[in-house]
């Protein structure tokens, strides 16, 4: 069994009367790539801050490398925050040099995919290269655990592929990775997913585990705006995929009843991860 690098047990957090995390369990083991999913405000960033020791939970237990979050434990973490945490008025090389010094001078060989022009100010790099630099800074000291908060947000498809290649590579080499993302395509790259809704853990497992037998109703029709209006009037939410509609929940009878007389053809299909996510997060 792989070593547990980070774990939360029954972690809750409250701001005044508002509960942002409610008895959440989370575990990241060596060599494991864990995706943390949730809509905005679900509590992902709060959970990450608690895991890193930047926030003390109202209740529950947190362990990082077998101990409570501490300066020593954080020394083994590579963190890419949402805001990237780069010094925009330092060059790429100066940013990396500072990170190296802060982590005690250790310096790992950088993957080619993380190469950035060394003499350009970080603030003048395009967003894709800034993300690459933030990655390079996080990877610089060969951490045992990577915490990546929406690491590919705003990055084009090609650059995203390269970054995910690096992420997969470090997990395969034995490091643990905890990554938050809004992209279900990226989430499917993870070994295991943890879904949060309103601070509560609603699903956990592989993408296939989470989708399970969940189905959606597909609606094929010539006039999709009309079909959409009819479905919404019947209290059914639908998403447009290509030129057909997909209704989460798999209630074929209800959809057919709503669409009677419109000429639309309704059938069942296996839900995608995104559809299952919507179903879980919107109840």
């Amino acid at each position: 069994m792989s070593e547990v690098l980070a774990g939360c047990l029954g972690v809750s957090h409250r701001y005044g009367d508002s509960t942002v995390l409610d008895a959440v369990d989370l575990q990241v083991s060596a060599g494991e790539l864990v995706g943390l999913l949730g809509a905005n405000g679900a509590g992902k960033t709060t959970l990450i801050r608690i895991l890193l020791g930047l926030l003390v939970p109202s209740s529950g237990h947190v362990r990082l490398f077998g101990e409570a979050p501490s300066r020593r434990a954080r020394g083994r973490i590579g963190y890419v925050p949402q805001g990237l945490g780069l010094y925009e008025d330092l060059t790429a090389a100066e940013n990396l040099e500072f990170t190296r010094a802060a982590f005690g001078g250790r310096w790992a060989v950088q993957p080619a995919a993380l190469t950035v022009p060394p003499d350009v100010l970080a603030g003048r790099l395009p967003l894709g290269l800034q993300r690459r630099l933030a990655f390079a800074a996080a990877f610089a000291h060969s951490p045992g655990l990577y915490v990546l908060d929406e690491p590919t947000s705003g990055v084009d498809a090609l650059a995203r592929t390269h970054l995910w290649d690096v992420i997969r590579g470090v997990a395969d080499s034995g490091a643990g990775v905890l990554v938050t993302t809004h992209s279900m395509e990226e989430a499917e790259e993870c070994d295991r997913l943890v879904m949060l809704t309103a601070g509560r853990l609603v699903a956990e497992g592989t993408a296939a585990d989470i989708i399970g037998d969940s189905e959606v109703v597909t609606v094929a029709c010539a006039d999709w705006p009309r079909a959409l209006a009819v479905l919404e009037n019947a209290g059914l939410r639908a998403a447009l995929v290509g030129r057909s509609l997909r209704v989460p929940g798999g209630d074929l009878v209800r959809v057919r009843a709503a669409l009677a007389g419109t000429g639309a053809i309704a059938g069942l299909a296996r839900a995608t991860l995104e559809e299952r996510f919507v179903e879980l997060t919107t109840g």
Binding site: L52, R74, G83, L84, G85, Y87, T99, A102
Partner: peptide, 12 residues
């Protein structure tokens, strides 16, 4: 700029 949070995560 969020770098203070990055400093907080570093072993400083």
């Amino acid at each position: 700029t969020g770098t203070l949070e990055q400093l907080a995560v570093m072993p400083l």
